[in-house]
Computed example of a mutant assay.
Amino acid sequence: MNHGPAWVIFQEHYPQSGQLLLSLLSARKSTSDVVRFMEQLYVDRFCSIEARIAYKKSRKNFAADPFIDAYSQIIHLGSGPFLVGIPVQQVALMNDVLEVSYKIAVHRPDPFNPKWESRSMSLALDSSAQIEGQR
Protein backbone atom coordinates (compact mmCIF):
# COMPACT_ATOMS: atom_id res chain seq x y z
CA MET A 1 0.00 0.00 0.00
CA ASN A 2 1.34 3.42 -0.99
CA HIS A 3 1.47 5.81 1.98
CA GLY A 4 2.50 8.82 -0.11
CA PRO A 5 5.49 11.16 0.07
CA ALA A 6 7.63 11.70 3.18
CA TRP A 7 11.05 12.54 4.49
CA VAL A 8 12.83 9.30 5.39
CA ILE A 9 15.61 9.54 7.98
CA PHE A 10 17.97 6.60 8.36
CA GLN A 11 21.31 5.74 9.88
CA GLU A 12 24.05 4.38 7.66
CA HIS A 13 27.31 2.79 8.71
CA TYR A 14 30.44 3.22 6.64
CA PRO A 15 32.47 1.18 5.65
CA GLN A 16 30.04 -1.53 6.76
CA SER A 17 26.86 -1.76 4.79
CA GLY A 18 23.40 -1.52 6.24
CA GLN A 19 20.81 1.10 6.89
CA LEU A 20 18.50 1.47 9.84
CA LEU A 21 15.26 3.45 9.61
CA LEU A 22 15.08 6.11 12.32
CA SER A 23 12.13 8.29 11.43
CA LEU A 24 9.49 9.31 8.90
CA LEU A 25 8.53 12.97 8.69
CA SER A 26 5.86 14.82 6.78
CA ALA A 27 6.82 15.68 3.21
CA ARG A 28 5.62 19.22 3.99
CA LYS A 29 8.59 19.81 6.33
CA SER A 30 11.21 22.16 4.96
CA THR A 31 14.78 21.03 4.42
CA SER A 32 15.95 23.29 7.28
CA ASP A 33 13.36 21.73 9.64
CA VAL A 34 14.60 18.27 8.72
CA VAL A 35 18.24 19.33 9.25
CA ARG A 36 17.40 20.58 12.77
CA PHE A 37 15.59 17.31 13.54
CA MET A 38 18.55 15.26 12.24
CA GLU A 39 21.01 17.33 14.29
CA GLN A 40 19.00 16.60 17.42
CA LEU A 41 18.86 12.88 16.57
CA TYR A 42 22.62 12.80 16.00
CA VAL A 43 23.40 14.64 19.23
CA ASP A 44 21.08 12.36 21.23
CA ARG A 45 22.47 9.14 19.73
CA PHE A 46 26.20 9.77 19.36
CA CYS A 47 27.42 12.75 21.38
CA SER A 48 28.67 13.08 24.92
CA ILE A 49 26.60 14.79 27.58
CA GLU A 50 28.91 17.82 27.31
CA ALA A 51 28.20 18.08 23.57
CA ARG A 52 24.45 17.73 24.25
CA ILE A 53 24.57 20.61 26.73
CA ALA A 54 26.56 22.75 24.29
CA TYR A 55 24.05 21.99 21.50
CA LYS A 56 21.16 22.87 23.81
CA LYS A 57 22.73 26.26 24.44
CA SER A 58 23.36 26.97 20.76
CA ARG A 59 23.05 25.05 17.50
CA LYS A 60 26.26 26.80 16.43
CA ASN A 61 28.07 24.47 18.84
CA PHE A 62 27.21 21.47 16.66
CA ALA A 63 30.45 20.17 15.14
CA ALA A 64 29.06 18.33 12.09
CA ASP A 65 27.87 20.50 9.23
CA PRO A 66 25.20 18.88 7.08
CA PHE A 67 25.83 18.31 3.39
CA ILE A 68 22.66 19.07 1.38
CA ASP A 69 22.49 18.09 -2.27
CA ALA A 70 21.39 21.20 -4.18
CA TYR A 71 19.24 19.22 -6.64
CA SER A 72 17.51 16.45 -4.72
CA GLN A 73 17.77 17.96 -1.19
CA ILE A 74 19.26 14.71 0.20
CA ILE A 75 20.88 15.49 3.55
CA HIS A 76 24.00 13.77 4.97
CA LEU A 77 25.00 14.50 8.56
CA GLY A 78 27.85 13.24 10.70
CA SER A 79 30.50 10.61 10.08
CA GLY A 80 30.81 6.91 10.90
CA PRO A 81 27.89 6.31 11.50
CA PHE A 82 26.05 9.08 9.74
CA LEU A 83 22.45 10.09 9.20
CA VAL A 84 20.76 10.51 5.82
CA GLY A 85 17.51 12.33 5.10
CA ILE A 86 15.81 11.74 1.76
CA PRO A 87 12.61 13.32 0.44
CA VAL A 88 10.79 10.36 -1.13
CA GLN A 89 7.78 10.26 -3.44
CA GLN A 90 6.42 6.95 -2.21
CA VAL A 91 6.50 4.97 1.03
CA ALA A 92 5.16 1.42 1.21
CA LEU A 93 5.25 -1.14 4.01
CA MET A 94 5.57 -4.70 2.73
CA ASN A 95 6.13 -7.66 5.08
CA ASP A 96 7.74 -5.52 7.82
CA VAL A 97 10.12 -3.87 5.31
CA LEU A 98 9.81 -0.21 4.35
CA GLU A 99 10.11 0.31 0.58
CA VAL A 100 10.77 3.88 -0.61
CA SER A 101 11.01 5.44 -4.07
CA TYR A 102 12.84 8.68 -4.79
CA LYS A 103 14.59 10.58 -7.58
CA ILE A 104 18.23 11.59 -7.75
CA ALA A 105 20.09 13.88 -10.16
CA VAL A 106 22.69 11.69 -11.88
CA HIS A 107 23.97 13.88 -14.73
CA ARG A 108 24.60 17.54 -13.90
CA PRO A 109 26.68 19.29 -16.58
CA ASP A 110 23.87 21.80 -17.14
CA PRO A 111 22.76 23.03 -13.71
CA PHE A 112 19.38 24.09 -15.08
CA ASN A 113 18.63 20.77 -16.74
CA PRO A 114 19.90 17.79 -14.71
CA LYS A 115 19.10 14.23 -15.72
CA TRP A 116 16.97 12.48 -13.08
CA GLU A 117 16.90 8.79 -12.26
CA SER A 118 14.30 6.97 -10.18
CA ARG A 119 15.67 4.85 -7.36
CA SER A 120 14.21 2.68 -4.65
CA MET A 121 15.50 1.08 -1.47
CA SER A 122 14.38 -1.17 1.34
CA LEU A 123 15.05 -0.15 4.92
CA ALA A 124 15.30 -2.28 8.03
CA LEU A 125 13.01 -1.25 10.82
CA ASP A 126 14.48 -0.34 14.22
CA SER A 127 14.07 -3.44 16.40
CA SER A 128 13.15 -1.33 19.46
CA ALA A 129 10.34 0.29 17.44
CA GLN A 130 9.10 -3.15 16.45
CA ILE A 131 9.03 -4.22 20.09
CA GLU A 132 7.13 -1.07 21.10
CA GLY A 133 4.63 -1.58 18.28
CA GLN A 134 3.90 -5.15 19.40
CA ARG A 135 2.85 -4.15 22.92
Rank of each mutant, 00 (worst) to 15 (best):
S23I: 01
R59N: 03
A105S: 02
M94E: 15
K57R: 10
S26F: 00
Y102P: 00
Y42I: 11
S58I: 11
S127N: 11
L123P: 14
F67Y: 08
S128V: 04
R59K: 06
I68T: 04
S72C: 14
Q90F: 13
L20V: 04
Y55E: 00
Y102T: 00
I74H: 03
S128H: 05
Y102S: 00
L22Y: 04
L83I: 15
Q130R: 14
L125C: 08
T31K: 00
L77I: 03
S128E: 15
K60F: 13
G85D: 06
S72H: 15
L41F: 10
R119F: 08
D110S: 10
V84L: 07
V100E: 00
F82R: 14
D65V: 14
P109S: 04
H107K: 13
V88P: 01
L125K: 11
Q89F: 14
K115N: 06
K56Y: 11
S72F: 15
D96I: 05
H76K: 15
L93V: 11
F112H: 15
N95S: 05
E117A: 13
H107D: 13
F62K: 13
L41E: 14
H107C: 07
Q40A: 11
F67S: 08
V88Y: 03
F112G: 15
L83N: 11
A64T: 06
S23Y: 14
D65R: 07
T31R: 05
Q40K: 15
M94P: 10
T31M: 01
H76M: 08
Y55C: 06
S128G: 02
